[in-house]
Nucleic acid binder design. Structure first.
Lengths: 113, 113
DNA sequence: TGCAAATACATTGGTTTCTTATGTATCTTT
DNA sequence: AAAGATACATAAGAAACCAATGTATTTGCA
């Protein structure tokens, strides 16, 4: 089952920042594949959503880029700036608290699985 | 701390449907207050978001309405239709699974608090 | 008693964020 | 040689929400 896209709204930046915090540097396509893999295909990032988001995060000063060539094909690696590292933690914390609040609101049990 | 509005995006319908499932019938203003109360002020629904959503859910056939007068002031009560009851459960289940997925993705521990 | 705040509905204009579609190009597998 | 995967990017439009505004009644308090 793929999650309805409205649920994912607002979480994309958080996901990207967290993945970069864990992996040091990643390129766009890699991010889409990693998310697919980690979520068992339930979240599929589209390129039309991801690339503008990466550009926006770079504009905000949270990401730095580094271009590498694999043969003739270009790869644009993204890494967290110092500000980005801080923001990544803040975003994850905020989301975590949001989950707790939503659990209360929706009366969800905590499943240890 | 008030959650950044982008997080709440996509959850509004789920919240509304669940509250109505729990409480039978509620009116708009009551919903905003109940959410404020249940979330310790961390989620504050704006009227500009809530009313269009209620109207949309009604158009979708998930809600039925019933107008009552308190003195001269009107109150519009919303209740779940049979379809709405089913949808409410589906939405809550979907969100619950979404939480699990996000927990994996963001590496969040399960806190029993 | 008069005024502010709370209650209660609603709409409009604008922004953000995502989707769908399209475009370019290279590399791999069959 | 063609299809599919890899890899970037943008543009047009839709969806969902926010901020602001509007109307009107009721309550609390000074």
């Amino acid at each position: 089952m793929i999650f309805s896209s409205e649920l994912i709204k607002g979480t994309l930046k958080t996901i990207v920042l967290k993945l970069l915090a864990d992996n040091g540097k990643m390129y766009g396509y890699e991010i889409t594949q990693r998310v697919k893999e980690l979520t068992a295909d339930r979240i599929q990032l589209t390129e039309g959503a991801l690339y503008p988001t990466l550009h926006a995060l770079e504009q905000e000063g949270l990401l730095t880029t580094q271009v590498e060539y694999m043969g003739k094909r270009v790869r644009k690696y993204y890494s967290l700036s110092p500000t980005g590292k801080t923001r990544s933690q803040e975003k994850v914390t905020e989301f975590s608290e949001f989950l707790g609040t939503m659990r209360i609101l929706l009366g969800l049990d905590i499943k240890t699985a």
